[in-house]
């Protein structure tokens, strides 16, 4: 029964190679952290924050913000299949496709279609996929338009600490099908709504018994944290996950991006 267990593939390398590899990994991590943690845009009265914590030295999660010429804030968050160096390389490819897509002045769904077209052949060749959630927030109307390519929808908690329902939406992962089509959904945010974008590393964090953190726990936690600033929410969630996993090695990259609208308009 079940004799075909994974075999240990670790091979010894020479010490000089170890040092070179360690140095290059450190440099790669620095590059990735700088690209991910670029200056946060200042827009409207919003309080915005984002962080990515790779499971290994570098990771395959991605998030980005860009202010569009029409004054909207474009947000993107994604998860490249896999971890470590291969995923990090594809994360850079994803970032390039996103930045290039901004030239098309497209909606979130059209942006995903443009990105899928530009990345499909490479991802097919490499046998990989990327899940993405793209959203535009209009600070004038508070409309949040979002589209998903196989990525978890954001969680929205209002100032009364209630979760707001979003229209369920699914879409094929980037790299899944050559001509994937995506749809936009729009919700109008209210004063002090908190929008929490995330990758599955949060809800799939495991404790020592293999139990998952899961979505309901995250939602309940966000309800209790709603009145904090976004960077404090970020910190508290990291603390809560650390407490839950209790020293168990992080298996997947963890990324969260938080938008609180009209934060200064009390």
């Amino acid at each position: 029964m079940f004799k075909n267990k994974i075999s240990d593939k670790n091979k010894r390398v020479n010490p000089e190679m170890d040092i070179t590899l360690a140095r290059e990994m450190k440099q790669a991590r620095n590059i990735q952290m700088k690209l991910l943690n670029a200056t946060k845009p200042e827009i409207g009265n919003a309080d915005i924050s984002g962080v990515s914590i790779p499971a290994r030295l570098i990771g395959g999660d991605y998030f980005d913000f860009q202010t569009l010429p029409n004054g909207k804030l474009r947000i993107i968050i994604g998860d490249v299949m896999g971890k470590g160096i291969p995923a990090a390389m594809l994360m850079i490819l994803t970032r390039g496709a996103f930045r290039s897509s901004l030239e098309f002045k497209a909606t979130p769904s059209e942006t995903l279609e443009v990105m899928n077209r530009s990345m499909y052949n490479d991802l097919k060749t490499l046998g990989s996929f990327v899940t993405l959630l793209c959203a535009d927030w209009d600070p004038d109307t508070n409309a949040l338009t979002y589209s998903s390519a196989g990525h978890n929808l954001p969680i929205i908690v209002n100032k009364k600490s209630k979760e707001r329902e979003l229209v369920k939406q699914s879409g094929v992962m980037i790299g899944g099908l050559a001509d994937s089509r995506y749809i936009d959904q729009t919700i109008t945010l209210s004063h002090q709504d908190m929008v929490f974008f995330y990758t599955d590393g949060i809800i799939e964090a495991q404790d020592q018994h293999g139990n998952l953190f899961r979505l309901p726990r995250l939602v309940e936690l966000l309800k209790t944290l709603h009145h904090f600033k976004t960077n404090e929410i970020e910190y508290s969630i990291k603390e809560e996950i650390d407490s839950f996993t209790n020293g168990i090695m992080q298996k997947d990259d963890i990324t969260m991006l938080i938008l609180k609208v009209n934060e200064n308009d009390k």
Binding site: M81, K83, F129
Partner: peptide, 14 residues
């Protein structure tokens, strides 16, 4: 099989 993460999905598709 009780858990499949995004990497596992990729393996399954492959």
């Amino acid at each position: 099989v009780h858990f499949v993460d995004s990497s596992g999905m990729g393996l399954l598709i492959s």
